[in-house]
């Protein structure tokens, strides 16, 4: 029973840890499907986290915090669009730039406004998203097997967790069942064809980037307003890049993205849980190896050793109307 409880706990933290990855990964999916590489997921998450926690603690409202997180994150996404769509700049360069501006400005502004060493004030109850306890969760907790699963895994998360997982089927529906999704996929594969059909490539890509901004904003808000109860400098700690890795791992598909993020979240949760204690059959695994595993897996996948990851064809190439 103890080991079962341990498994449930690891799975529970897997869910918690994979939510920001999932949101960022789906965010990247919108922009990359539309043909815009986005290295800047990390930065957009970071500004989202900062704006969310700062606004929530100033206005004493979690919802205003979330709104602000989304707003600022979308603004950064638009800056990326301005550089890479309107001015046809290098998308990777622009993404790198956004990451730096985000990393620096969150610390500087955080220090200037709150003077707590780059932190925002700790969020009070009501300023953050609380866990939602599902009906009957406490009552069934004692039921073997199913009880803990219901009480720990399904119940007891914040609204943003459910939102993240709801975004998976929603994104699938948008991508494969709506006109916008079809056009978005087309613009990522062959923008010239979309242009010939009389649809604005730039406007489509901007809309895709708005979706990206919204989702990275929520991801950031989750980090600072659910997971942590306040902004800490550099709190994304490479999650944006892991999300990027997950996106490649998922071959740019929403449902795969969920499983990839759950896998990477599980690796993280397991690394925290094990802390260097030996595994059966394998022996002691260094924590650092577990932490590096998502990156190693992505490299191996990209090299085509486990299936082939084929990105959207027009990704990274600015669209120039034929003169």
């Amino acid at each position: 029973m103890d080991s079962f409880n341990a498994i449930v706990q690891v799975l529970d933290s897997t869910i918690r840890l994979s939510v920001p990855l999932l949101l960022a990964c789906l965010a990247g999916l919108y922009s990359e499907r539309a043909g815009i590489f986005d290295i800047g997921l990390e930065g957009k998450m970071l500004v989202g986290a900062f704006a969310g926690a700062a606004a929530a603690s100033v206005f004493h409202s979690a919802l205003i915090g979330l709104g602000m997180a989304v707003l600022i994150s979308v603004a950064f996404a638009m800056a990326h669009g301005f550089a890479s769509i309107t001015h046809r700049g290098n998308q990777i360069v622009s993404g790198v730039a956004i990451n730096f501006v985000a990393a620096g400005s969150t610390i500087i502004l955080g220090q200037a406004w709150f003077s707590q060493g780059g932190r925002t004030p700790a969020l009070q109850p009501g300023e953050r998203f609380e866990a939602i306890v599902w009906p009957g969760a406490e009552a069934v907790r004692s039921v073997p097997i199913l009880g803990p699963i219901y009480a720990e895994l399904i119940s007891g998360h914040s609204i943003l967790v459910y939102f993240a997982f709801a975004m998976v089927p929603f994104t699938w529906w948008v991508l494969f069942r709506t006109r916008f999704g079809l056009r978005m996929r087309a613009v990522g594969e062959n923008p010239a064809a979309v242009d010939t059909a009389g649809i604005s490539v730039a406007w489509l890509r901007y809309r895709a980037l708005i979706c990206t901004g919204v989702l990275t904003g929520v991801a950031g808000a989750y980090l600072s307003m659910v997971q942590n109860g306040g902004f800490v400098k550099d709190m994304t700690a490479g999650k944006g890049y892991i999300a990027l890795a997950a996106l490649i791992f998922a071959k740019w598909k929403p449902v795969n993205a969920m499983f990839a993020c759950l896998l990477f979240g599980f690796l993280d949760a397991a690394a925290i849980r094990l802390q260097g204690s030996p595994l059966p059959f394998i022996g002691k695994v260094p924590v650092q190896f577990m932490q590096a595993l998502p990156y190693i897996l992505t490299v191996v996948l990209l090299a085509g050793f486990i299936g082939k990851a084929i990105p959207p064809r027009a990704g990274g190439v600015p669209y120039v109307k034929e003169r």
């Binding site: 800056a79 301005f82 550089a83 890479s84 001015h87 046809r88 700049g89 290098n90 998308q91 360069v93 622009s94 790198v96 730039a97 956004i98 990451n99 730096f100 501006v101 985000a102 990393a103 620096g104 400005s105 610390i107 500087i108 220090q111 200037a112 780059g118």
Partner: peptide, 25 residues
Amino acid sequence: PAISRDMIVIIQGLVILFAGALEHM
């Protein structure tokens, strides 16, 4: 004291943005 060394990270980002991605603006 309000301007820590992280200001440079912002400047670095802005230089990359304007000298790199928005080179032709």
